[in-house]
């Protein structure tokens, strides 16, 4: 089963990349961009076929390695 893990800086954690992207968008003439947060996406292809078990496994992977939960939050969804 394929899953998508999305990792973003936690609210309140400085996101200089997001800020720089927002500034670049404004410089390109895109108006009305209130906020940009930049993170990463990790695609997992797991042997597990049970969606509940697969999601639980992906959450554990995110907790232990994929995200640093001190500074990042993550979501797991079927891909």
């Amino acid at each position: 089963m394929k899953l998508r893990v999305t990792i973003l800086p936690k609210p309140g954690v400085l996101d200089p990349q997001g800020k720089a992207i927002a500034q670049a968008l404004a410089a390109l003439g895109f108006s009305g961009v209130n906020d940009v947060r930049a993170g990463k996406t990790i695609m997992l292809d797991l042997a597990e076929t049970d969606p509940v078990k697969a999601e639980a496994a992906a959450r554990e992977m995110a907790q232990k390695l994929l995200a640093n939960t001190v500074i990042e939050s993550f979501t797991v969804e079927p891909a």
């Binding site: 800086p9 954690v13 400085l14 200089p16 720089a20 640093n68 500074i71």
Partner: peptide, 16 residues
């Protein structure tokens, strides 16, 4: 820090 032996996190430099 990543090993959890010290607390906190080290982010990208504020200036990028």
């Amino acid at each position: 820090i990543e090993a959890g032996l010290l607390p906190g996190g080290l982010l990208k430099n504020a200036t990028l």
